[in-house]
Amino acid sequence: MKKTKLGEFEELVLMTVVVLQEEAYGVEIKRELEERLNETLSVGSIQSALKRMEEKGFLTSEFGEATQKRGGKRKRIYSATPYAHRVLKEMKDVRSQLWAAMPNVATS
């Protein structure tokens, strides 16, 4: 599998970006994920995941509006690339195939 790898945390962040649509910027992603995972995340971890994925071609971004709360600094809105959608789909398929292939022991 010579394809670019997507880590577990990266995958979560990527999916959050897709979920949040137009609202997908750093702080919002952090809030959303914190709520869903029920744990505290740091800006650093979210940002480094975002930057990494942008470099790998999973995400594109552009500047959004600036708010007073941000001290006049602009947000950066992320959106997933078609390639990212394809990879997400592939991973989901792989997982569901694996789930299907698993013997029925875990449920007992």
Binding site: Y25, G26, K30, R70
Partner: peptide
């Protein structure tokens, strides 16, 4: 190139 965005993020969280 990251400064504006990330500093903004942290500022927002600070608020």
């Amino acid at each position: 190139e990251y400064l504006e965005e990330i500093e903004g993020d942290i500022d927002e969280i600070f608020e």
